[in-house]
Design a binder for these strands. Structure first.
Lengths: 142, 142
DNA sequence: TTAAGTGCAAAGGCTTTGCAGCATA
DNA sequence: TATGCTGCAAAGCCTTTGCACTTAA
């Protein structure tokens, strides 16, 4: 699996061990194909390895984040959500009705960011844009 | 104080009591002139009213948020930050070096939001844009 | 007067951490 | 073999909640 290889090689490059737990968690993050929180990741992990601990899940997420393999985001609740870092940045529409998360690309968004960086002498490393509201289905209901 | 009046009248309109605690907390939120978290708000509150409880702080913040008096945001840490809702929306630059938060206005941002709403049939009620990175000072250091 | 609000303390949910044993390189 | 990693359990934070007392209207 090409994708898994990317993750594990990033671990190796920085001198981290490739453990069965980390390999499993990376696989699950790729399979998730989107946003997943630590609790759900742990739930899926113990299905494949009953002995894995929550501590390992949190420690791995923290490491993956540090290595830039995943993005962390807060979508309104208490907990964080994670997803494999994508080549192209995308932003989020969060439905307050059904909780659905819609990923969107915003045309020319990068240009706006570049302008902001210039105007404020600020070097942007990460952008998070969350738009809360109501999706088509939930909007029609009310 | 005109500003305080706004807050308390919003309470009254919806049939909520104006208590000394709520008045104090609204005052402190206005005085903060920016982002403040529940813990800091509580710290400032007990300086003026030693008997106020954390529960009241959290319950009041929750009420103010529901009434649309304040905005809640997550700036990277575990806890939430709050600020009096401003007439004009502004967005945030968050410095990863010194933790400074810079509020910015983005020209024509509302137009972009409108387009997104239209394109995705999504009714946006709240927009959060966080740009993490390094401010002028911290950018120069590295 | 009376429903709403408060303080207190305990509990809840998510995340982190210390430590002894285990596994990768 | 020697670090680094893991599992376990406990602790840490932030936030919420139950209950009896208090207070605004």
């Amino acid at each position: 699996m090409k994708r898994e290889y990317n993750g594990t090689s990033a671990l190796q490059k920085k001198g981290h061990f490739i453990t069965t737990q980390r390999r499993l968690l990376l696989d699950l993050l790729y399979e998730a194909e989107g946003h997943i929180d630590a609790k759900e990741l742990y739930r899926r992990a113990i299905e494949k390895d009953a002995s894995i601990s929550q501590a390992t899940v949190y420690r791995s997420l923290s490491l993956f984040k540090e290595l830039g393999l995943i993005d962390e985001m807060r979508l309104g609740g208490v907990q964080c959500y994670y997803e494999i870092k994508q080549g192209i940045d995308h932003q989020h529409l969060i439905c307050q009705g059904c909780g659905k998360i819609i990923e969107i690309d915003i045309p020319h968004f990068q240009e706006s960011i570049n302008k902001i960086q210039k105007d404020h002498c600020f070097k942007v490393t990460k952008v998070e844009l969350y738009m809360h509201g109501y999706c088509t289905d939930c909007g029609n209901k009310s």
